[in-house]
Amino acid sequence: MNIQDMVNVLHAKVLCGQERLETKVYTACCSDLMSDVLAFVNEKTVLITGLTNAHVLRTADMLDLKCLVFARGKIPGDDLLEQADEQGLVVITTPATAFTACGLLYEAGLRGVPIEWPESEARL
């Protein structure tokens, strides 16, 4: 799946990075907790979130993420979008809630980012 496919599935609007819609997406993560995102996500993952502050961008920058999806039709400020563009991110916004956006993407074949726990931290 590439970002253009996600745009189609989510009836999303592209807020920046229009020229990078061919970028491939391998896995997804949905969270408003940037601490969790920092713990589990890799650069091939798309982040679906309802949080639109500067720390989402910083988190994406630290992880070299390629695409952010804002749920519930949220649109960040122009300053954030400029920064996102500089970072080489594609940012899209979908009217769907985070739950529905995840469902639609899952149905279209996208899967969650695999979480690899060290054996010492294994849990249910």
């Binding site: 907790l33 940037m34 601490s35 969790d36 920092l38 713990a39 949080l51 720390h55 989402v56």
Partner: peptide, 27 residues
């Protein structure tokens, strides 16, 4: 310990304070 946090409401509202910081650094 994962999940333990004493972060303020401000930190939590920004998406932090999930108690993942120190374990995540160690990992």
């Amino acid at each position: 310990r994962e999940g333990w946090s004493t972060a303020s409401e401000t930190a939590r509202s920004l998406g932090f304070g999930a108690g993942m910081g120190l374990p995540n650094m160690k990992r």
